[in-house]
């Protein structure tokens, strides 16, 4: 599903990703773990198409299509979804208006019919109940004045409504208490399907107790340093990232 080859990314004259390779198969849940400042968010932004990065080398293929050739909205409609580490507050745009605009925009660019209002409201109600999101919250402006936990739930609600092929969750666990973590994880787990893939970015093992990954990748200093199964996460929990960081420096 996702194939990243030799990705080099810099901001200004600073190189952040230095030849990153990664493969995630359909149906797979892949975890990326790594110390702070190593380029995990940069990777997720570059996949989603944020501007401000210069991609000097490499490619990002989603089902064979190079995402780097597409503007962000077309990446979204071809199935990429990023749950932001820091969801952006947009005062003045009502949540419901935004959710509907997003669903319809994606449908339109896929040549599908727009969703009608009753159907839309029904879908939002179903999904928000699962995530324990109050209807009152959805009447407020998008993310503005939301608590950290509320913002993260809204990200997962969007994911549930948009049904992406590739979901990237950038530190969705940070700022969540244990109950919220469980609710959000259940939300993610219920979306697992053979034709969908997940990239779970975190630097704690904790989230992976709830969302069981198929593969774990250690990222440090702009590259995937080691890949393995769930046992790798436990090992990292014990020994930290020390080995990978010093390896690189040596």
């Amino acid at each position: 599903m996702l194939e990243i080859n030799d990705l080099h990314v810099s901001v200004g004259d600073r190189q952040i990703l230095k030849g990153l390779n990664l493969k995630v198969a359909a149906g797979e849940v892949a975890a990326i773990m790594g110390p702070n400042g190593t380029g995990k968010s940069t990777l997720s932004y570059v996949i989603a198409g944020r501007e401000g990065y210069s991609i000097t080398q490499g490619e990002i293929l989603l089902n064979g299509v190079n995402l780097l050739d597409l503007p962000p909205h077309l990446r979204a409609s071809s199935g990429v979804f990023l749950a932001f580490q820091y969801p952006v507050e947009i005062p003045g745009v009502a949540c419901m208006q935004f959710l509907k605009a997003a669903m319809n925009a994606q449908r339109r660019s896929r040549g599908e019919d727009e969703i009608n209002t009753p159907e839309f409201i029904k879908r939002v109600r179903e999904e928000s109940e699962k995530l324990k999101i109050h209807q009152e919250m959805l009447r407020r402006p998008l993310n503005s004045g939301f608590s950290g936990g509320e913002k993260k739930r809204l990200e997962i609600l969007q994911m549930a409504l948009l049904q992406p092929k590739l979901s990237i969750l950038d530190e969705t666990d940070s700022g969540l208490d244990i109950d919220a973590l469980k609710t959000v994880s259940e939300g993610v787990n219920s979306l697992r399907r053979p034709d969908r893939a997940f990239l779970i970015i975190t630097h704690y093992q904790r989230l992976l107790d709830y969302i069981k990954p198929d593969t774990v990748h250690v990222m440090a200093q702009g590259r995937i340093q080691k890949s393995g199964g769930p046992e790798l996460a436990l090992e990292l929990e014990k020994h930290g990232y020390q080995d990978y960081v010093s390896n690189e420096a040596a």
């Binding site: 944020r50 501007e51 909205h73 952006v88 947009i90 935004f98 925009a105 994606q106």
Partner: peptide
């Protein structure tokens, strides 16, 4: 630009995203 990217990452094209932000503003 952050708001614009957030909206576009959800599927709105640049014009749709701009319109939404300008109306809100």
């Amino acid at each position: 630009k952050e708001q614009l990217f957030y909206l576009m990452s959800r599927g709105l094209n640049e014009q749709e995203a701009m319109s939404l932000l300008i109306e809100a503003f």
